[in-house]
Amino acid sequence: MTTAKPPVFRFAPSPNGYLHLGHAYSAIMNHRLAEARGGRFLVRIDDMDQGRARPAYEDAIFEDLAWLGLDWAEPVRHQSAHIPDYLDALDRLDRMGLIRRSVATRREIAAGADVAAAAGTPWRRDPDGGWCVPEDDLFLPPEVLRKRRETNAPATLRLKMADALARLDAPLTFREESDGPAGETGDVALDPALWGDVVLGRSDVPGSYHLSVVIDDAAQAVTHVVRGRDLFYATAIHRLLQHLLGLPTPVYHHHRLILDETGRKLSKSQGDTSLRELRAKGATPSDIRRMIGC
Rank of each mutant, 00 (worst) to 15 (best):
A24F: 00
A280H: 09
A36N: 09
A34V: 02
I99Y: 06
P171I: 06
I99P: 00
M48I: 06
I292T: 04
N152F: 14
V225P: 00
R167P: 01
A234I: 05
V198L: 14
F62S: 03
C132R: 09
S269A: 14
E63S: 10
D272L: 08
H210G: 05
A221M: 11
H20G: 07
G246D: 05
A280P: 01
W131R: 09
H243L: 12
D85Q: 13
R54T: 10
W131A: 08
H23L: 01
D204S: 12
F62Y: 12
Q270M: 15
L257Y: 07
D64E: 08
D91P: 00
L68K: 05
R167N: 09
D191P: 03
S267W: 14
Q220I: 07
E184G: 04
P84S: 12
F139D: 00
Q79C: 05
R107D: 10
D197A: 03
R146Y: 09
M29I: 15
R92L: 08
H254L: 06
P248F: 14
N16L: 07
R202G: 01
P141D: 13
K265F: 09
P7W: 08
E35A: 12
G130H: 13
L240K: 02
A27N: 05
H224W: 07
P285I: 12
W67E: 02
A218N: 01
A116V: 03
K268G: 02
V76I: 13
A166C: 07
E135I: 12
D85C: 11
S212Q: 10
L33E: 04
A155F: 08
E184H: 08
I28S: 00
P84M: 14
L172A: 10
G51T: 11
D216T: 04
H253C: 11
D128E: 12
R32E: 09
M48H: 02
T173N: 11
V8G: 04
G293M: 07
A193Y: 08
L200K: 03
S14D: 08
F174Q: 04
P134M: 06
A34S: 03
L257H: 07
G112C: 04
M291E: 06
S208I: 02
G38D: 05
L90R: 02
P181M: 13
W67S: 03
V251C: 15
R146I: 05
D49S: 08
L231W: 08
A27K: 04
S14H: 12
